[in-house]
Design a protein around this nucleic acid. Structure first.
Length: 1013
RNA sequence: GCUGGAGUGGCGGAAUUGGUAGACGCGUGCGACUCAAAAUCGCAUAUCUACGGGUGUGCGGGUUCGAUUCCCGCCUCCAGCACCA
C-alpha cells in the first residue's frame, strides 16, 4: 500500500529529469521491426512566454504521439522555433534590444517551459530558422528555384503595411487590413521577388483529393485557389463607325504653320425608319462620300441645324432627333476650297426618320449628291473607302489595328446577350486605345480616381462607376453587332483577363451597371429553375420589376404566387422573343440561373447552358480555359530580422544568385533596423563591403529579406537530419520519415503556411530534391481555448490563463488532460477554459492514485470486463483523436473501480498504461514503484475480448418504439422463447392487453421492439 | 451571395453503421465528515404531470417497427471566399 499523497510538483520534475538523462525520447531514423510515424505540431514562434494555446498545440498532440509510440511505431515528435520575424524587431525597437539576443534568450526560456509539459520531444533534433546552419538551406532552395524559373523579380502592385512598413503577401491581408498589425493596407508599386506558386495551381487544387485531411480544410484551400472553368472569348475592337476625323495625308491634310480657323458643324447620322441602315451621301461635285453635314449658324441650335440639313439636303421631311452626342468629333485639316486650316468641331447628331416621305429634289440637287442606304455594319467601310474626300473619312495609314480583347467568362452560353464590353481600368488596352478615344480627359480623370481608392474603399462602396470609351466599339463575336466599350472598377485587373463581356440580363453586376448607364438588356437564356418540379421564384412583381437572381428576391409566398410570377415572366419573354430578346424601355430582367438558350442562332437555340457554352465558344473561335484567384507569392520584406535573399547585382543592375560556397549569406550585424520603409540591410557597411570583396567593385547586395513563411515552408525536413552540413536532409532520412503522417496546427494557417509549404514541396519535388509531392498526409486543425468568460484570451480583457500558474497549482498532467478533455480535439471549435473543470480532472487523477489502496490479488469479473471495454474504447478514441471521450471512459471505469472491493495489481497496471499518454509523469511514478524501465516504452494494452462478458445483457423492450421495460437476455437465446418471456413481462402485459402483436423485432445486443395495434 | 461545418440540459459536451437521448465533467440542491470552513465522500439533477403517463435533440414535413442520426423544405450561428466575370 502506498499511503503517499499524489504530489505532481515533486514527481513531474523527477521524471522529466529521468527521461532526459536516459534519452527516453531519442529517435533513430530506423528501428528494426517498427514502422516510422511522423507526428508534427506547427513549431513555435519564440515570443518569450508559453501560453495556454501552446499547451493545446503541443501537449495534447503529445498524447497522440505517445499512444502511437506505445502502439509499436517509431515515432518522431520534434520541436523547434520559427525564430525569424517581425515581433523580435518590434520588441527590439521598443526596448532597445538586439533582436538576435531577444530571440535567442526567449528560445532558451521557452525550451524550459516546453519541458514542463512532459512532452516526448526529441530535443536533439531541434532547429531554429534564424540559425545560419538552417537558413543556409533556405537560401540554397531559393537559388535552386531561381535557376529553374520558379522565382522572378517584378514590379507589381503590392500590399503595403504602413505600420510595420513592409510588403505583405495576399494571404496576410484580411479584409483590407494587415493580418499582423491590423493596419489598413495600401497599394503601392514596388519591385519584389515573386515565387511562382501559380505554376502549381492545378496540382495544389487537385492533389488535395488524396490527402487525408478534414473536408473543410480542403474546401478552404480550393476556395483560396479559386479555380474557375470557363471560356476565353475574343472580342474585336475597332474605332466606332460614326465619328472619325481625317488628319491626312491627302490634299486636305493639315498644313503646318498656317492659320487655323475654328468652325462648328453638325454631322447627321440618319437612320432608316425600319431597317438597321444609315443614309450615306456620295457628293458628285466634290467627289467625296460621307454623312450629311452643315455649319451651325448663329442663333441656330444643334438640333435645328441637323433637322433642317436633313430636310434640305435629302428631301426626307420627317426626321426626329434620337441623340445629340456630348462629345464633338474634331479634326484639323486643310480646307481645299477656302484655302485655310480648319479646326472643325463636329457635333454628331443621330436622327431617325419617322417615315420615308420625301419631297422631290430638283435636278440641281440631284446633280449634287446621291443618297444611299447602307447597313449599319458597312457604314464604316463605306467611310473608309479610298475615294473618300472629307475630314471624317479614315485614311488607311491612320487605321490602328487593335489586338482582340480576350474575355474570360463562365457563361459563354449568354454571349448572344452581351451588350457591352468592360475593361478593368488597369487593362493594357485602355492605354493602347488612347489616341482613338474621344473623351480621354474623362477617362483619365476616372483612372486617377480609381487609383486613389484603396482596396478597402473598393470593397466598401459597391456602387458601380465607369466611363464609356467613346470612339471605340467592340464586336460581339456571336451576333456580329457592335457594342460599346467601358472601363469600370468593378472589373478587376487581376482576375481572368481583366475584361468582361457584360450580359445585363443574366448577370447581376452587369445589370446594376447597365441600369445606371442605360445600356441594353438582351434575354438569351430561359432558366430551367422555373420548370415543373423545380420551383423557385424569380420575379418580384409587376411587369417593370427589376428581377434579380433568386437569392435576392423575396422568397415568401405561396406556390400559386410563385407560379403566377413564372407565368408572367414566360408570357413576357414570348413577347420579347419577337424583338430578338432585346428588352424594351423600362423592362429590366436579370436572371442568373442556367437553362436553355433562346434568341441565339439555330445552332444553339434550345440547347442547355452547358452544351451551349461549348458550341458558342467554338463558334466564335474562343477556347475553354481555367482561371485562378491565386496569385504569385511575393516574398520580399523590407525588414531586418529575416533570411537575407541570396542575390547580388552586377554594376549594370542584373541579378545574380550567390554561389553555394558563399552560403549561408549571413545577416549582417551592423544595422540600424528602425523601419523607415526602406530595407535596413541597405544601411549595412559590412554587407556592402562583403559583396564588393567577393564579387567585385560596383556589385551590390539585395537588401530585402524573406517572408518568414519561406523559412517555415520546409522546416519539417530539417528535423530529419538537422546536423547535416552537405544536404538539407539526407535522402535516407527523407525516405524513412516523409510525408508527415499527422500534422497538428492552427486553422489560421489553412491558406497561408499550409498552402505555401505544399507549394514548396511540389517545387522541390519537381526539381528532384525530395521524393514526395505532398508534405502532410494527415492534418488536423485544432480549436481555440477561450478565456473563462468565453471570450478570446487577451490581456486587455484580463481573462488570460497562465499555464505556469495552473501547473504549479495542479500539475502538468492535469493541465494536459484537462485540455484533452475540454472538447473534441478533432473538431476545431472554441472551448472556454473552466477553472473548475481543471479541478475536476485533478480529482480524477487523485482518485486513480488512491485506487492503489484497493490493489489486492483479484479483480471481480464484472470490473475486469469494464476494464477491457475501457481499454478498447480508449485506444479507438485516441486513434480518432476524440480524447475527451477516451478520458470520460477512463473516468467511468475509475468510478466503478472505486466501488469495487479490489483490483489486481496487473489490472491496475493496465489502467495506468492506458492513462500513461495522458498523464505521463504520474503513470511513470506509479509504474516505477514496481518496474525497472519506463512505462513509456511499454506496449499499449490490447483489450482481451474474452474477458468482456457479453452473454448476459439487459436489453430495452419497446412497444411501438417506446421503451417500456428491460429484460436480461442470454446471448444465444432462442427467439421464440425470448418472445414468450417478453410478452409475459408484467410491464409489457399492460401495454399489449386487448391488442394483437403484429411484429416482434429483436436486434441482438441492441433492442427488442413489439409492434402492436 | 457562394463554399464548408454546426445547432442536444444552467454550461463544456456524449450517443462510432438508424436501436434505452443527455455518458463524462462542471455547476446546482440535499446529505455525511467537521465546533466551523475548505478539501473529500454519498445521493439527486431535461421538462410537464391529475403520478397512469405525456413531451423533448433549431423549425415544418417525410421515410421507418424505431430518427439527434436518412430524405425534402426552411431558420439561426460559426468559418473560408466574395463587385471573382
Amino acid at each position: 500500500m502506498n499511503q503517499n499523497e499524489y504530489n505532481p510538483q515533486e514527481i513531474e520534475k523527477k521524471w522529466q529529469q529521468y527521461w532526459e538523462e536516459n534519452n527516453t525520447y531519442k529517435v533513430e531514423n530506423k528501428v528494426e521491426g517498427k514502422e516510422n510515424f511522423y507526428a508534427l505540431s506547427e513549431f513555435a514562434y519564440p515570443s518569450g512566454n508559453l501560453h495556454v494555446g501552446h499547451w493545446y498545440a503541443f501537449a495534447v498532440p503529445d498524447i497522440y504521439a505517445r499512444y502511437k509510440r506505445m502502439s509499436g511505431y517509431n515515432v518522431l515528435y520534434p520541436m523547434g522555433f520559427d525564430s525569424f520575424g517581425l515581433p523580435a524587431e518590434n520588441a527590439a525597437i521598443k526596448r532597445g534590444l538586439d533582436p538576435r539576443k531577444w530571440t535567442y534568450e526567449n528560445m532558451d526560456y521557452m525550451r524550459n517551459q516546453l519541458r514542463s509539459m512532459g512532452a516526448s520531444f526529441d530535443w536533439s533534433r531541434t532547429l531554429a530558422t534564424s540559425d545560419p546552419e538552417y537558413y543556409k538551406w533556405t537560401q540554397w532552395m531559393f537559388i535552386k528555384f531561381y535557376k529553374n524559373d520558379l522565382v522572378y523579380k517584378d514590379i507589381t502592385k503590392v500590399n503595403w503595411d504602413p505600420v510595420d512598413k513592409t510588403i505583405l503577401a495576399n494571404e496576410q491581408v484580411i479584409n483590407g487590413r494587415s493580418e499582423r498589425s491590423g493596419a489598413e493596407v495600401v497599394q503601392k508599386d514596388m519591385a519584389q521577388w515573386m515565387l511562382k506558386i501559380t505554376d502549381f495551381a492545378d496540382e495544389l487544387h487537385d492533389d488535395l483529393e488524396n490527402l487525408d485531411w478534414d473536408h473543410s480544410i480542403k474546401a478552404a484551400q480550393r476556395e483560396w485557389i479559386g479555380r474557375k472553368e470557363g471560356s476565353l472569348i475574343p472580342f474585336k475592337i475597332q474605332e466606332s463607325e460614326v465619328y472619325d476625323v481625317n488628319t491626312g495625308p491627302g490634299d486636305d491634310a493639315f498644313r503646318e504653320g498656317e492659320e487655323i480657323v475654328d468652325r462648328d458643324n453638325v454631322v447627321v447620322i440618319i437612320e432608316h425608319p425600319e431597317k438597321d441602315e444609315f443614309l450615306c451621301a456620295r457628293w458628285k461635285q466634290v467627289d467625296w462620300q460621307g454623312f450629311v453635314t452643315g455649319g451651325i449658324e448663329d442663333g441656330m441650335s444643334i438640333e435645328e441645324t441637323a433637322l433642317s440639313e436633313v430636310r434640305e439636303e435629302t428631301g426626307y421631311q420627317n426626321p426626329e432627333i434620337i441623340k445629340v452626342y456630348d462629345q464633338s468629333s474634331h479634326g484639323l485639316f486643310w480646307h481645299v476650297v477656302k484655302q485655310q486650316n480648319r479646326r472643325a468641331n463636329y457635333r454628331i447628331v443621330h436622327v431617325k426618320l419617322k417615315d420615308l416621305e420625301q419631297v422631290a429634289r430638283s435636278p440641281e440637287e440631284q446633280a449634287i449628291a446621291d443618297f444611299l442606304w447602307i447597313p449599319r455594319l458597312e457604314v464604316n467601310d463605306f467611310l473608309k473607302r479610298e475615294d473618300m474626300r472629307y475630314p471624317w473619312r479614315v485614311v488607311s495609314a491612320n487605321i490602328q489595328k487593335f489586338d482582340d480583347v480576350k474575355v474570360f467568362t463562365t457563361r459563354a452560353d449568354t454571349l448572344f446577350g452581351a451588350t457591352y464590353l468592360v475593361l478593368a481600368p488597369e487593362h493594357d488596352m485602355v492605354q493602347n486605345l488612347k489616341s482613338q478615344v474621344n473623351n480621354w480627359d474623362e477617362v483619365e480623370t476616372y483612372l486617377k480616381e480609381v487609383e486613389k481608392k484603396s482596396d478597402l474603399d473598393r470593397q466598401q462602396s459597391k456602387e458601380k462607376t465607369g466611363v464609356e470609351l467613346k470612339g471605340i466599339e467592340a464586336i460581339n463575336p456571336a451576333t456580329g453587332k457592335p457594342i460599346t466599350v467601358w472601363i469600370a472598377d468593378y472589373v478587376l485587373a487581376h482576375f481572368g483577363t481583366g475584361a468582361v463581356m457584360a450580359v445585363p440580363a443574366h448577370d447581376e453586376r452587369d445589370a446594376e451597371f447597365a441600369i445606371k448607364y442605360d445600356l441594353p438588356f438582351k434575354f438569351v437564356c430561359l432558366p430551367s429553375a422555373g420548370e415543373p418540379g423545380v420551383s423557385r421564384p424569380l420575379i418580384t412583381s409587376g411587369e417593370n420589376a427589376f428581377i434579380q437572381s433568386a437569392g435576392v428576391t423575396e422568397k415568401k409566398g405561396s406556390q400559386e404566387e410563385i407560379n403566377a410570377e413564372w407565368n408572367a415572366m414566360y408570357d413576357f419573354l414570348a413577347e420579347v422573343h419577337d424583338q430578338g430578346g432585346v428588352l424594351p424601355e423600362g423592362k429590366r430582367f436579370c436572371c442568373t440561373f442556367e437553362g436553355k438558350v433562346i434568341n441565339g442562332n439555330e445552332e444553339v437555340n434550345t440547347k442547355n447552358s452547358e452544351e451551349a457554352r461549348r458550341i458558342i465558344t467554338e463558334m466564335v473561335g474562343g477556347e475553354m480555359a481555367k482561371t485562378y484567384r491565386l496569385r504569385d507569392w511575393g516574398i520580399s520584406r523590407q525588414r531586418y530580422w529575416g533570411c537575407p535573399i541570396p542575390i547580388v547585382y552586377d554594376p549594370e543592375g542584373n541579378a545574380h544568385s550567390i554561389p553555394k560556397e558563399h552560403l549561408p549569406w549571413v545577416l549582417p550585424d551592423d544595422v540600424d533596423f528602425t523601419p523607415d520603409g526602406t530595407a535596413p540591410l541597405a544601411r549595412s557597411k559590412e554587407l556592402k563591403e562583403r559583396t564588393e570583396k567577393i564579387f567585385g567593385v560596383g556589385w551590390t547586395p539585395e537588401v530585402d529579406t524573406m517572408d518568414t513563411f519561406v523559412d517555415s515552408s520546409w522546416y519539417f525536413y530539417r528535423y530529419l537530419d538537422n546536423q547535416n552540413d552537405e544536404q538539407f536532409a539526407s535522402s535516407e532520412s527523407l525516405n524513412s520519415w516523409m510525408p508527415v503522417n499527422m500534422y497538428f496546427g492552427g486553422a489560421e494557417h489553412t491558406t497561408m503556411h499550409l498552402l505555401y509549404s505544399r507549394f514548396w514541396v511540389k517545387a522541390l519535388h519537381k526539381l528532384g530534391y525530395v521524393p514526395d509531392n505532398e508534405p502532410y498526409k494527415g492534418r488536423l486543425n485544432r480549436g481555440l481555448i477561450l478565456g473563462p468568460d468565453g471570450a478570446k484570451m487577451s490581456k486587455s480583457k484580463g481573462n488570460v490563463i497562465d499555464p505556469d500558474e495552473v501547473v504549479a497549482h495542479v500539475g502538468a498532467d492535469t493541465v494536459r488532460m484537462y485540455l484533452a478533455f475540454i472538447g473534441p480535439f478533432n473538431e476545431p471549435g472554441n472551448y472556454p477554459w473552466d477553472p473548475n473543470g481543471v479541478v475536476g480532472v485533478r480529482r480524477f487523477l487523485d482518485r486513480v492514485w488512491r485506487l492503489q489502496e484497493k490493489i489486492s490479488d483479484i479483480t471481480p469479473e464484472e470490473l475486469q470486463s469494464d476494464l477491457h471495454q475501457t481499454i478498447k474504447k480508449v485506444g479507438e478514441d485516441i486513434q480518432r483523436l476524440k480524447l475527451n471521450t477516451a478520458i470520460s471512459s477512463m473516468m467511468t471505469f475509475v468510478n466503478k473501480a472505486e466501488k469495487s472491493e479490489s483490483i489486481s495489481r496487473s489490472d491496475y497496471d493496465l489502467l495506468i498504461q492506458i492513462l500513461a499518454p495522458f498523464a505521463p509523469h504520474m503513470c511513470e511514478d506509479l509504474w516505477m514503484q514496481n518496474n525497472k524501465s519506463s512505462i513509456h516504452t511499454e506496449s499499449f494494452p490490447i483489450a482481451d475480448e474474452s474477458k468482456i462478458s457479453s452473454n448476459l445483457k439487459a436489453l430495452p423492450v419497446q412497444i411501438n418504439g417506446k421503451v417500456r421495460a428491460q429484460i436480461v437476455v442470454q446471448e444465444d437465446e432462442d427467439n421464440e422463447l425470448l418472445q414468450g418471456r417478453v410478452i409475459a413481462l408484467p410491464e409489457i402485459q399492460k401495454w399489449i392487453e386487448g391488442k394483437s402483436i403484429r411484429k416482434f423485432i429483436h436486434v441482438p445486443g441492441k433492442i427488442i421492439n413489439l409492434v402492436v395495434g
